[in-house]
Write a protein that binds this DNA or RNA. Structure first.
Lengths: 257, 257
DNA sequence: CATATTTTCTTGTATTTTGAGAATTTTAGT
DNA sequence: ACTAAAATTCTCAAAATACAAGAAAATATG
């Protein structure tokens, strides 16, 4: 264990399910002497990446809140897309969850969301949550724009039920890519139906998607054209604004140099 | 530069004002050879603490969004206090921003906020933002519960205008502590008036405050009793719930061992 | 106040990091 | 597609530091 890994391994122990650890527990889990863990944890506490809680327990520290805020204020995707989510939600014909998601390693992560006030279900799509790569429209709208070796690398670790399953997946991917949007039902959460379109910006390295998720019960076939029209127009808007931001950044850097 | 410091120094360059850096810029800023920075940045990118953006620039990565979410779901203060902020806001007689803040090193950080829909001003109080230690009711409600050497250490780096200024500060602190709440006007943002009460839990190591901030124009003296009543009752509620969580954690750990 | 637990400290040794420059890859302009 | 510039990775020996084991100190607990 060397370099950043030694810090990252410890930080990654902290999860939704288990948000506090003692040094001894960490030491057990990572099979590393406790004197070493004490030293590393002390460093992380000093940098506010961890903080000590009651009874020798440690939990994630406020540095993450601070940096998260900076991302919200400056990340071009979040900054641009966030304000449009509410508008999109209001134009949808039924109650919805609306999500901006992007590629994160070989998972998909929601980076902004807006739920209409009376949406009944709890979706898995919440800001910061990692989602599976091969299920759900949100994810598929992202990967359908990736091709060749990049796609291969990305899917390398995914396990399909059988070859037939795999073929179907790739066929759907191709079809959706032709159509320009995705629709899936119940792949991530039972009782929910999702629609998604891709958002891309090659220069800024953005591989993302915009999606609206509904309760299957509320959904009627006649809603579909409106949903697609909304998603498509907002995704174009967001892409255009992101380009704008890119130009601004360029200008800024040119001026300052 | 050794240990976690070398990573932290780089991460801390990324700010609201300047959210993307090239390796060469970092190398200049930290007076460290670029080959070294390249290696460190590569590690941080691998761990998703940074990500590469357009034109050789790097920005903060999605790891912060992920960990921030875990904190939101598990931090006892955020988890407990968040839902009460909206209720508090609705019971206030005028439009308000309501804030949960806590000590973060020798600054104060807002960890949760709720603004009523028609509040006009933009407060400095946003989730994740670091606030000055000696200005504003929000901060004072926190430090007024800290005593002796701890207080000294905390204020060591603060610079007062003159001795008179310093005396006034400590006198106010003492007074507020007696009353159990703070009120300041225009110390952080012009045109805003803030009220705050402390929230503490020694066992969980929580030193925090709950505050309501209003536009001075909206505020009338007869609102004051209601504001204090609300703040006081909600702070007690939050403290009680946090205690509850503490017991739950205790039980959980006892069961699993 | 005594005991158990948590945390820091000490040490020689093993491992990792470092930085300068060369080598390679990527990018952007023609 | 070619070329020049820029960005990134690689190499290696010297320097720095992280490591583990246990002792010592500090802190919590009953």
């Amino acid at each position: 264990m060397s370099g950043f890994t030694r810090y990252n391994k410890i930080l990654n122990l902290f999860s939704e399910q288990r948000s506090s650890w003692t040094v001894l527990e960490i030491s057990d889990e990572l099979k590393t002497p406790s004197s070493t863990i004490y030293r590393i944890v002390r460093e992380l506490v000093l940098a506010e990446f961890l903080e000590s809680a009651a009874g020798a327990y440690f939990r994630l520290g406020p540095a993450f809140i601070k940096f998260n805020r900076i991302i919200n204020l400056s990340d071009p995707l979040v900054r641009t897309g966030q304000p449009f989510l509410k508008k999109l939600a209001n134009e949808n014909p039924i109650e919805s969850v609306n999500v901006l998601a992007r590629l994160y390693g070989n998972k998909v992560m929601c980076v902004a969301d807006y739920k209409t006030p009376f949406f009944k279900n709890n979706t898995s799509y919440q800001k910061g949550k990692l989602m599976p790569l091969i299920y759900g429209a949100t994810s598929r709208a992202i990967i359908m724009k990736i091709v060749g070796k990049n796609l291969e690398d990305l899917l390398k670790q995914e396990i399909f039920y059988d070859d037939n399953d795999k073929d179907t997946f790739f066929k759907n991917l191709k079809n959706d890519n032709k159509k320009g949007y995705c629709k899936t039902e119940g792949q991530v959460d039972k009782g929910l139906i999702g629609f998604a379109v891709p958002i891309n910006n090659k220069k800024l390295g953005i591989e993302a998607s915009l999606s609206s998720i509904f309760n299957s019960i509320d959904f009627l076939p006649e809603h579909e054209p409106i949903i697609y029209a909304n998603l498509t127009s907002y995704s174009l808007l967001i892409e255009r604004y992101i380009n704008q931001i890119f130009d601004d950044i360029q200008n800024y850097h040119q001026k300052s140099s």
